[in-house]
Design a protein around this nucleic acid. Structure first.
Length: 289
DNA sequence: AGCACA
């Protein structure tokens, strides 16, 4: 069993099944990409999915084949289901088909056990020190936009049958959940937000300070009307945050009102608020860990 | 249905 990515470290790893296979397949096999797909596109599609570890595009066949490794089989299956029937490119009519792979993706590891090849989670932030810039894919519950990725069929967790999952990660966190003290921004600074995605009920918060903490973020966001839950993802010097609202309208309001908000810990200007990519919404799905 | 990298 591989260690889960650092951002899930506060969650208890699943206990190895005494009677289960220790070499369980936790890799997905994805077809249906357009011929000009880039390996990076697969990485960007999956990078925030819970348990994502590494991925690879293989171009040797007649059609591009994507492989992605996750920390557990359950996480892989959840990603597989989320990718199923996804319209990757409306122009080329590419609809993704995903299955569990026959074998796990091979990842070369260094002495310290870190992944050294492939497009892996440990290198998420390697692009010039910038933090995450979402690919132009819409997030889950948003209206379909032309030329963008939308689920061909409404996902089972979509608007119709969607029931808010309990904020399950809190039970794993190593701190007591107490009533957040409301926090107001210390000010506002202009922020560039050139590449955003279509509005949806989830927000991605970037350009936060290195010293930002969850209490501060919770103090700012949990008092916003429509707030449902949030998840802070730490990756070294970079911290990002995903916030789910009860509907698109309340998310749009916060996207506008708190754009460029400066916190006491901000050291690079105001926070950048964006609508996240389709797959990043997986942070709020009910995935068994 | 089509499963590669080592």
């Amino acid at each position: 069993m591989a260690a889960p990515p650092a951002q899930y470290a506060q969650w208890s790893a699943p206990a190895p099944q005494a009677d289960g296979p220790h070499d369980e397949v936790r890799t997905i096999f994805v077809l249906g990409f357009p011929l000009d797909v880039k390996e990076r596109e697969l990485q960007n599609l999956l990078r925030w999915w819970p348990g994502y570890e590494a991925s690879q595009m293989n171009f040797k066949g007649d059609q591009p084949m994507g492989f992605a490794l996750f920390s557990t089989a359950a996480m892989a299956m959840a990603a597989r289901d989320a990718l199923q029937n996804l319209v990757f490119d409306a122009d080329t009519n590419s609809v993704l088909r995903a299955e569990m792979a026959k074998k796990n993706l091979y990842v070369k590891r260094g002495v310290a056990g870190e992944i050294t090849t492939g497009f892996d989670a440990s290198k998420r932030m390697r692009t010039g020190g910038n933090d995450y810039s979402p690919a132009p894919y819409p997030a889950p519950y948003g209206a379909p936009y032309p030329n963008q990725v939308v689920p061909a069929a409404a996902p089972s967790w979509g608007p119709q049958g969607y029931v808010a999952p309990a904020p399950q990660y809190e039970q794993y966190a190593g701190y007591a959940v107490s009533q957040p003290v409301p926090i107001a921004p210390t000010g506002y600074a202009p922020v560039q937000n050139t590449k955003d995605n279509p509005p949806c009920n989830t927000l991605f918060i970037g350009n936060l300070g290195e010293a930002v903490n969850e209490t501060e973020l919770r103090g700012l966001f949990s008092s916003q009307p429509g707030f449902r839950q949030m998840k802070v993802v730490r990756q070294g010097k970079n911290t990002v945050c995903f916030i789910e609202f009860v509907d698109v309208n309340t998310a749009v309001t916060v996207h506008s009102n708190l754009q460029g908000a400066v916190l006491s810990t901000s050291d690079r200007g105001g926070m950048r608020i964006q609508y996240p990519t389709f797959m990043s919404s997986g942070l709020f799905l009910n995935i068994p860990f």
